[in-house]
């Protein structure tokens, strides 16, 4: 997290999981911090090293959360509570405590996302609001499966958005993403994993 540069401070903000955490830069005098990892060339293209780093971090996090949810007792209890809180309570797990823990983890992940993304964007205190709607839309469109749903919806929306951005500019790209979300939810009212990959994690 020190990647964001000297003189920064992370301030967690309570909110829903998936909401990014704001990073407040205290030292307003020193605002130009270059991205911490140098780029490299591949054939005729220049690749930004830090963007590459973000991709790797996301993949690692996704795999890690899949493994935790799938393989550990903690993940089992969390999934069980999500499916049937009453049943989990009957088996001796406090749903409140489980929700609290998952909320902690979600907030921590959101914080990490904010920290990792911070070097790429101009930070202002209201920066996080840009991502609330998109995060919300992506998660809901994914459907019931946590990891697969997120993966599929993020892939669909990312592809649509970037394709249209490439073809006709960022605003159209953004609008295309939003229209895609409407069409997708109209066709699959339970999200992507409500029909495909049903019952998988």
């Amino acid at each position: 997290m020190s990647a964001a540069g000297v003189g920064t401070r992370l301030r967690p903000r309570s909110g829903r999981a998936g909401e990014p955490i704001f990073e407040v830069r205290e030292n307003w005098g020193d605002r130009r911090v270059s991205t911490p990892i140098a780029g490299f060339t591949l054939g005729g293209y220049q690749i930004n090293g830090y963007n590459f780093f973000i991709i790797i971090v996301s993949i690692l996090l996704l795999v890690a959360s899949y493994l935790v949810l799938r393989g550990t007792r903690l993940g089992l209890v969390a999934r069980g509570t999500m499916q049937s809180a009453d049943m989990a309570a009957a088996l001796g797990y406090s749903p409140d405590r489980v929700y609290m823990t998952t909320f902690f983890v979600g907030s921590a992940l959101a914080g990490l996302a904010g920290g990792v993304l911070a070097p790429l964007v101009g930070l202002v205190p209201t920066w996080g609001t840009l991502y609330i709607a998109k995060a919300f839309i992506t998660v809901i469109s994914g459907g019931a499966s946590i990891v697969l749903g997120l993966l599929s919806s993020a892939t669909v929306f990312g592809l649509v958005s970037q394709t249209f951005t490439f073809l006709s500019g960022p605003v159209i790209g953004e609008v295309a993403l939003l229209v895609a979300a409407i069409v997708l939810l109209r066709l699959l009212p339970q999200g992507i994993t409500g029909r495909f990959f049903k019952g998988r994690l």
């Binding site: 709607a133 919300f136 839309i137 809901i140 469109s141 605003v171 953004e174 609008v175 939003l178 229209v179 979300a181 409407i182 939810l185 109209r186 009212p189 339970q190 999200g191």
Partner: peptide, 16 residues
């Protein structure tokens, strides 16, 4: 899901 659709429609208007 309904919440998302209404939210998205507002955002489309805003962006457009």
């Amino acid at each position: 899901y309904m919440g998302v659709i209404t939210l998205v429609v507002t955002l489309i208007f805003f962006r457009f």
